[in-house]
Design a protein around this nucleic acid. Structure first.
Lengths: 187, 187
DNA sequence: GAACAGTCAGACAAGTTTGTCCGCATTGTT
DNA sequence: AACAATGCGGACAAACTTGTCTGACTGTTC
């Protein structure tokens, strides 16, 4: 029965996603996940060899959620400058929707300095995806700032991560607004 | 015997500092701290009522270490623009010296989304100290960017946190260098 | 000389952690 | 009808968690 199969697995990842993101990876136990997901522990370990693998699935899910939201947000926008600014506005919405939980990849790396290679690699992979987005958009700009294309994209990426992080710390989207002000000077 | 008294307490905080910063707060147990510090568990709980309080002492110690390093680094520099740039260069050194462990306050907040008020408050207190430093320096600048003084300081602060964070993720100081490039456009 | 602060080693409590395993039920496929 | 895949509940293992407590030993201070 395909419906049940995906439902249980999906239910596990959805619950892990919610709990890891809200409480942090290390403070969330397997027992809490199976309990709140309403599945048996054996089912979890049937689908995921370890908590670590479940974490990788969680990171992937976060990336997909963000990516989908951004794509929807950018629909109809062609101007690259407008795209970049909208990306920050989208981030603002995302943070509010998710109770200022910040960036899942950064949080995981902050929690596990060098423990798990699998998790670390996945997080960096996702981060690089975000960076590439900015690089592509900046390439479409006519760059008048005197900074190279890649440098400019990296600076925007810096503002993106910095404002996401600070918004979590202060539980307020003011840092994202500040980042947008910086953008309007830079591009 | 005053020497012994301060030595034991200091030894505990120093060890907690090293381990919390390298491994993360939640992944570091009290047992490991007392073992590596070479003190009795009872001594730790004599000086600190709980792990949480030890964590506050750790955060304070980190702030003092950074503050001392920065002050030394800025000796002889009067130009505010130069001060701000040097602050980033100092950060670069700090990150290398500390094996790219990032910002202790941000890391703690990333680990404990809303658990401990004591820790959260201490972290935000320290962050506000950093922000005030930039505000003061920007006030001394003749601001030609068209951005308000506080906004500009907040943007610099954003670059500071963002580059610290990304340097941890990538284990490389390139993000700090990018932040300095941004600074040279902004101020 | 008595009280006291500080430190030690380590047992102990009570709970949590990840992960394994067992027996049994349900399902779709062969 | 047999079988493999998937699910369930829950016991269990082995280790780890924070924190408490006991009892003994210092050196200082009153």
């Amino acid at each position: 029965m395909i419906i049940t199969e995906t439902t249980v697995r999906e239910q596990i990842v959805a619950t892990a996603d919610r709990l890891f993101y809200a409480q942090g990876y290390n403070l969330t136990g397997i027992n809490q996940i199976v309990e709140e997901a309403g599945v048996a522990k054996a089912s979890l370990y049937y689908h995921f060899p370890s908590k670590e693998d479940l974490c990788v699935a969680y990171l992937q899910r976060r990336a997909e959620k963000w990516s989908a939201k951004l794509q929807k947000f950018l629909t109809g926008t062609n101007d690259p400058r407008e795209c970049i600014i909208k990306c920050f506005e989208c981030r603002s919405e995302y943070l509010i929707e998710n109770n200022y939980s910040g960036c899942s990849y950064i949080r995981i790396i902050a929690e596990m300095p060098q423990r798990s290679k699998k998790i670390n690699q996945r997080a960096i992979l996702n981060k690089e995806g975000q960076r590439r987005f900015f690089i592509e958009k900046v390439k479409e700009l006519k760059n008048t700032s005197g900074i190279s294309t890649v440098d400019l994209a990296n600076i925007i990426f810096l503002l993106f991560d910095g404002s996401t992080m600070q918004s979590q710390v202060y539980r307020d989207i003011a840092p994202v607004k500040n980042a947008i002000k910086a953008l309007k000077v830079l591009i």
